[in-house]
Each structure stands twice: as structure tokens, then as C-alpha cells.
Amino acid sequence: MTADLTTARLTLRMPDARDHASYSAFFADAEASRFYGGPLLPYQAWERLAADIGHFMLKGFGRFVIEKDGQVIGGCGILDVDGWPGHELTWWLLPAARGQGIAQEASRAVLAWAGTELGWPRVETHFRDENTAARRLTESLGGTKQRRETFPDGIDRDIYAMPTTEKVSA
């Protein structure tokens, strides 16, 4: 099966039934989940978890959960949702796990995995203009703006691409 990814502080693994509580906690937090379609009720969080697992099954890649010291603190991976323009590097973090460089550390592991395991030279992502944290993180990963598109929800978003093979300094 898809092997776990490990970094200095983190383990990234496929989500499973143990992760319902983490998904529910994150998506119940309206502020934390506002760029992720939240807030969600617990049953909707379960559907999101099931969809993340199903994405791995259907496409061979997806969004891992991030473990630190044995606790799930967020997720990071690549989603390619049909009906949405292109794939995206995506991450979510519980509020207590923010501000420690975890999204960057996890993203680097995912980018390296995309290069070596998926054979992708680059990975794209996109975000709303007001999501300045996502823009900063993307740029710290070597991301450069490729184009701007109007998404099916009517919102214009910049689309960035990040290299998977080059070493990027922080």
C-alpha cells in the first residue's frame, strides 16, 4: 500500500477510521475551516474523511493525515477533484499546530513523493486572494504563479505550480 511518508517531526499516512474525531474537530471550527468548506457537522466530516480515503482508492494519490508525537494534527496531500480545475496541493492544520512550520515540512514530503512515486515534475495549487497564508507557504515551496482562472463557484483564484525535484531553500 501507499507507504507512510516521514520527516524530521512528522509521519504522513493514509487516513482511516481512527481519524473521524480529528476531521470532526477541525471542521467544527468555523474559523479554522473557512477555506475548506467548513464549518461542517460531524456527519459531513465523516463524509469528507470517506471521500479522502476514496480519493486514494480511485486515483492512487490523495490527502494524507499528519501525525506528530502520535497525534493527528492535520492533513496534507494532493487532491484532484473532478469538476474542479486541476489538482491541488492542499493542507489543513488544527489551530494548535499552526505557526510551527508543519505545513511546509509536510508539503515538502508530499512534493518529494509526487516527484519520486507519481513521476510528476511539478504540483499545482490554488487559493483565494485573501488566503495570504497559503500564498506565503506556496511561495516558500518555490511556487510561481501560472495563471488565473474563474472557478465553477464563480471565484477567481491564482493557480501556482511548485517543482517536485528541485531543492528549495526556506
Binding site: 482511516d16 477510521a17 463524509e47 469528507r48 474523511l49 470517506a50 471521500a51 479522502d52 480515503i53 476514496g54 480519493h55 482508492m57 480511485l58
Partner: peptide, 8 residues
């Protein structure tokens, strides 16, 4: 994808 994930 959600109903696919239910298998797991």
C-alpha cells in the same frame, strides 16, 4: 469518492 471510501 465518499461511497468508495466507505468500503475501507
Amino acid at each position: 469518492s465518499s461511497t468508495a471510501g466507505q468500503w475501507f
